[in-house]
Design a protein around this nucleic acid. Structure first.
Length: 764
DNA sequence: GATTTTACGTA
DNA sequence: CGTACGTAAAATCT
């Protein structure tokens, strides 16, 4: 039976086209009746579209095995060709203002194009019925499979709603000036400078790798105009030396004039301009990357994606095609960034939480850039010594292993390790711990599995394998390339996480060091240090996340302990094992610490088992005992779940908002439990650090060295007294978290030393 | 050659 | 069935 197109009784402006009916649809004779239909209805509801006012159909109104005869999808099968003709007929008769293509097949049929990912969210002209607008988005089946696509689909349908108001296809008509001559460039820059009080100007750079030398400079003051200055072509300068100097001088004059500047990831562009060209951007007015991060931390944030949901521009994707093409993208990037500013700034301004969070992130741009360019010093002699030490250890184990195993094995190869453990040695196959009960079981040879097998068999080979891999990993973090000044650099990413913590990754501008400086192995930290004749001060928030949790759940015993400066983990152990506080042994304290941490984030017994190296039974017992001692925690978790079921939104005490879009279940809950404490401390530290930077950036004998989620590091001249400097750090870090019932202050602990490893308590 | 998976380091 | 990250090397895809 044919599945009939659903046609509303009044004239419909939106036509939704799926692929082909499935078994269920064919039986009822209705499109989208199964789980895909449920998903589609949910998406439409969220987007403010009534299902009943849409024309709903498929490219084929009966089940179909093969759509096309060829792989290129140019020739439909005879059956499908008839269906396409039927669809064309329906479009012409029903005359909707906009057609939505759900997935790749409708995209192909309606537009003749392919490449769903690149075209998603954009409006293209139909080739089937010329003049008709087609918006491309995911098929609900893809959303049902990967729920994180849900809100992206909602955004697409919001655009559909807007586009359904009229049938006109608007041609993209921006004027793009690519690689103009010197006079044109200077004339435009002068024009911008003359209007510096009124204009908002977007800038975008393209660079060469390695070195991040600027090859194209894109600039736009208006969404319908973009200019791309070509500086380098095929590694050769495009302008005579003096002309290039003149152009850069003009750019520098404009950027330092106080004109409002807009970027997509300012800490990269601004610092590249400064580092490579000495151009200083005085007024970083708006960053579209940061605004996207504040508005939708869970969405993709690249320019192409943002344009697809907020603008009406055709998809323009970056290819490594010819140079001129690259310039066109660059000019369009600048124009689109300028257009995004117009769309995004009202969204930020409309919500107080968005506003404060955005302003806070904007305030971090200069600091993040500064810390990237500054880098951290490494002692080459210490690096060499560490390498020698661990290389010898690794070699010794390698020799031991090769005499026992008699065959060459790459211990870094999961495949070969599986062969060795589960085939040659005949050990019981170990599986990775799953995130959710319905995840598939995956065979593993990771450290946790090896530990488990070692406990069971006491086979020394397992211990050797563990040690070999450990030393091999450490050597990786020692064998890093240093800059000519013996420094390692990292790019601190303000928008790197969904919590507001910074992430740390390889710097494009100064590609030296391990890249991520936030996961450096403790055993190699000895080689990192401050400048010559300087030492380091560390300031970290004490038990920060646990402190926040204790207030959120109103655990008065623990709150009081934090207030009194009692050792919280000792207290935990004392309560759990029912021993007097003063008789808690270090071993018991460790157990208390691990359990508190694990339980706050709803870890299961298997995690405790592997962390504490106890049996599953004992781990379960510990958990039960802790939960009994802290009944408030489960209540709070319940409260969070109730809030999530209401609107899936959580807001932290510092105003950061996050929508939890995962499929309803334990994994979503655990992310939610972790969010508020983790985000609050991340934001608190970044606020404090920015405050410290702004207040002290002109000081000579000390300065910021590193950021580590809940700690900051400062280098200082060893001839100075560290205490007053630590006091300045404390001034910036002693900062209230405003909770409904109290202003919460998190304690700060200080350490001091000559390198990142050897640090000892500093009393202030 | 590009992309995904595995393993593992940090808070 | 802790979350939040990034990277190297191996495995896999095209």
């Amino acid at each position: 039976m044919d599945v009939k197109t659903i046609i509303p009784s009044t004239r419909a402006t939106i036509m939704i086209v799926g692929e082909a009916p499935g078994e269920v649809e064919e039986k009822c004779g209705m499109p989208f009746v199964g789980s895909d239909g449920t998903t589609l209805r949910k998406i439409l509801t969220q987007a403010g579209i009534f299902y009943g006012e849409c024309i709903i159909t498929n490219t084929s109104c009966r089940r179909i095995k093969t759509f096309f005869l060829d792989k290129k999808q140019e020739n439909p099968t005879p059956d499908f060709a008839l269906q396409i003709a039927r669809l064309k007929d329906e479009i012409e008769t029903l005359n909707p203002n906009i057609i939505v293509a759900l997935g790749a097949i409708p995209l192909r049929v309606l537009t003749g194009l392919s490449g769903l990912k690149a075209l998603r969210g954009t409006i293209v002209q139909s080739s089937l019925v010329p003049g008709k607008k087609v918006l491309v988005t995911y098929h609900p089946k893809a959303v049902t499979y990967d729920w994180s696509l849900f809100y992206q689909s909602v955004m697409d349908f919001r655009k559909v709603r807007h586009e359904s108001l009229n049938p006109e296809f608007r041609e993209y008509k921006a004027e793009l000036k690519v690689a103009p001559g010197k006079q044109d460039i200077l004339q435009y820059l002068d024009f911008l400078y003359e209007n510096r009080k009124e204009f908002v100007v977007a800038i975008d750079l393209e660079h060469l790798t390695p070195g991040a030398h600027i090859s194209w400079f894109g600039i736009s003051h208006n969404e319908n105009f973009g200019m791309s200055v070509r500086f380098i072509e095929n590694r050769v300068q495009c302008f005579p030396e003096m002309d290039e100097v003149e152009i850069w001088a003009s750019i520098a004059k404009l950027c330092s004039s106080g004109i409002k500047l807009v970027f997509h990831n300012a800490s990269y562009d601004v610092m590249n301009l400064w580092h490579n060209q000495g151009v200083w951007c005085e007024n970083i007015h708006f960053d579209t990357l940061l605004s996207a991060h504040v508005l939708w931390p869970e969405f993709p944030k690249d320019l192409g994606y943002l344009c697809s949901i907020l603008l009406n521009v055709p998809a323009w994707k970056h290819t490594s095609g010819n140079q001129y093409e690259h310039g066109e993208y660059n000019a369009q990037d600048a124009a689109n960034t300028r257009a995004l500013y117009d769309k995004m700034s009202p969204l930020i301004a409309a919500d107080e939480n968005y506003k404060v969070t955005f302003e806070r992130e904007m305030a971090q741009i200069e600091l993040a850039g500064y810390m990237q360019l500054r880098g951290v010093e490494v002692d080459p002699a210490q690096k060499e010594a560490l390498h020698k030490e661990f290389f010898e250890k690794m070699t010794a184990i390698e020799t031991g292993l090769s005499t026992i195993l008699k065959k060459e094995i790459n211990f870094s190869s999961p495949k070969q390790m599986q062969e060795l453990l589960y085939v040659d040695m005949g050990l019981p196959v170990q599986y990775k711990r799953r995130k959710s009960a319905d995840d598939p079981r995956v065979v593993t040879t990771d450290a946790e599995a090896l530990e488990k097998l070692y406990i069971a068999t006491q086979d020394p080979v397992l211990k050797l394998l563990l040690e070999y891999r450990k030393y091999n990993k450490i050597l990786q973090s020692i064998n890093i390339e240093l800059s000519p000044e013996n420094k390692a650099h990292t790019s601190y990413n303000i928008s790197g996480t969904e919590t507001g913590r910074w992430s740390s990754s390889k710097s494009i501008i100064l590609d030296y060091g391990s890249g991520n400086l936030q996961n450096v192995d403790r055993r190699v930290r000895k080689m990192y240090r401050g400048p010559a004749n300087c030492r380091l001060i560390q300031a970290d928030y004490i038990g920060a996340e646990a402190h926040v949790v204790s207030h959120l759940i109103q655990d008065h015993k623990v709150i009081k302990a934090f207030d009194d400066g009692t050792d919280i983990h000792k207290l935990t152990a004392s309560i759990m094992f029912n021993v007097p506080y003063d008789e808690v042994t270090p071993e018991l304290r460790t157990i208390g610490k691990t359990i508190r941490h694990a339980t706050n984030y709803s870890a299961g017994p298997a995690v405790l088992q592997s962390k504490l190296k106890v049996t599953l039974k004992v781990a379960k017992e510990y958990l039960t005992r802790f939960q009994n001692a802290t009944p408030q925690l489960a209540l709070w978790h319940e409260k969070l779940r109730a809030k999530l079921s209401e609107d899936r939104i959580l807001v932290t005490p510092l105003g950061r908002k996050r929508i939890f879009m995962d499929r309803w279940g334990d994994q979503l809950f655990r992310s939610a439990y972790a969010f508020v404490p983790q985000s609050t401390i991340g934001d608190l530290l970044n606020i404090s650090m920015t405050d410290f930077y702004e207040k002290n950036k002109t000081e000579k004998g000390f300065g910021l060295w590193m950021q580590l989620h809940d700690a900051i590091y400062v280098w200082y001249d060893q001839n100075l007294d560290p205490v007053p400097i630590a006091q300045k750090m404390l001034e910036s870090m002693h900062r209230p978290i405003k909770l409904p019932h109290i202003d919460l202050y998190i304690g700060v602990d200080f350490k001091e030393g000559e390198n990142w490893k050897e640090m000892e308590g500093l009393k202030i």
